[in-house]
Design a protein around this nucleic acid. Structure first.
Lengths: 224, 224
DNA sequence: ATTATACAACTTGTATACTAGAATTCAATT
DNA sequence: AATTGAATTCTAGTATACAAGTTGTATAAT
């Protein structure tokens, strides 16, 4: 497992959650692999308690499978689950971007502009993951502006199902398209055009459409 | 705090979560009240560990406020939070009820009918909370039929914000209307009429926010 | 050889002891 | 009397010991 750096003032439980989540998404903890509270704890230099808290949270969205008194494991990819998470995300993102057209003030638009500017800067920085962080922050901003940040937190967890499929697919979406999408969305919000904003968001999210069948034949051992 | 009966094969953690959740919704743990892991544990005949697990989960949706090394409490009703949970629930419920029109088979319709029949029976059973349980189960059924049960689980947690407001409102929202709404929704699903189903669901869900201002003046000590 | 049983080696669930930090109280000092 | 400060007593965070249950293996009996 790939260890992350422990942030200042971060509790052991938070660190464990962040680390485990990251390793599930990047497939270091591969689908179907067995995990053990003891091993994870030892690897992260913690006791079982904070690790256990992290595993419980992840098991709530079925990204970790805890079988009491037996074992715990990382579930194989369940495409129904992937679809369910996508359904939820699409519905809420589109509704939120419509709300943003009413609710975004000048300061909010400035924050969005700043984010998109940075995205342009890091557009070619393929491996750094910096663009991915900015992408995530962009969507978080949209939820914040619409006063829906709590919902974003829930989406973030269930989206792990989708995120690890995206990792598997090595998501071939062109960075230029993503950044342009974001810029267009900000424009629509500035023009207070909810219909356009929703349409652009739909197009944007559709880019991540993944060929499930192809993945399933390429990595059959990861699927249920 | 009102203690529930421990179910067979229910772990201590599950029991603690179920009990605390129930007591927040029925306001036995009133908004603004301070809570303590030790007290709750003693009251339920458990140790801190399973109680702590329950509190952590509830704090993830901000229905419990944990201040590290200081104290924990039940937050006052934050109407922005109530609105956020309502927003999420409305959006998903309406989308799901449309899906149900395509996906519900005869057996599903029978299950819905049975639930509504029971609701009619318990319509005047004001204090038992039985009607509220049936109401919850009705909506769970709609998500199950649309193969979106994981999403329902997430909604259920964030909806606690909304549910405790509903507890306050039960005195003013007519049970007869609620049950009639449900019956109408089942009818629309049977007719495979997604537009009608969505419209009916919107009407149904709208009934609960009419009394927001009245509740705030009736129980000002519970609001932030 | 096969089946059954006992035991050993895991697992997660729970209880408890300990650590660290914040708030409060009460006494000492100014 | 007001203020400072140390001690007490809360809190939550963590580590660890133990309980309960499952699985697999080895051994013994048939």
């Amino acid at each position: 497992m790939r260890l992350l750096e422990r942030l200042p003032r971060e509790s052991g439980g938070e660190y464990a959650l962040r680390t485990i989540k990251e390793n599930i998404i990047n497939l270091e903890l591969p689908p179907g692999s067995q995990i053990s509270e003891n091993e994870l704890a030892a690897e992260m230099g913690l006791s079982r308690t904070p690790v256990r808290e992290a595993l419980i949270e992840l098991s709530k969205v079925k990204i970790v499978d805890v079988q009491p008194q037996k074992k715990s494991s990382i579930p194989l990819i369940d495409y129904d689950m992937v679809e369910e998470s996508r359904f939820m995300r699409d519905l809420l993102e589109c509704a939120v971007v419509e709300l943003d057209c009413e609710m975004a003030g000048p300061a909010d638009l400035e924050r969005l502009d700043e984010n998109v500017r940075l995205q342009s800067l890091y557009m070619d920085d393929f491996y750094s993951g910096r663009l991915m962080t900015l992408d995530d922050q962009f969507h978080e901003l949209l939820f914040d502006i619409a006063k829906k940040s709590q919902i974003f937190a829930l989406i973030r967890n269930i989206s792990i199902h989708f995120d690890r499929v995206r990792t598997l697919a090595l998501s071939s979406v062109k960075n230029t398209k993503i950044v342009q999408d974001h810029a267009d969305i900000v424009d629509a919000i500035r023009r207070k055009d909810p219909k356009a904003a929703r349409a652009l968001m739909e197009t944007h999210l559709d880019r991540y459409d993944i060929d499930a069948a192809a993945l399933r034949t390429a990595y059959p051992q990861y699927f249920r």
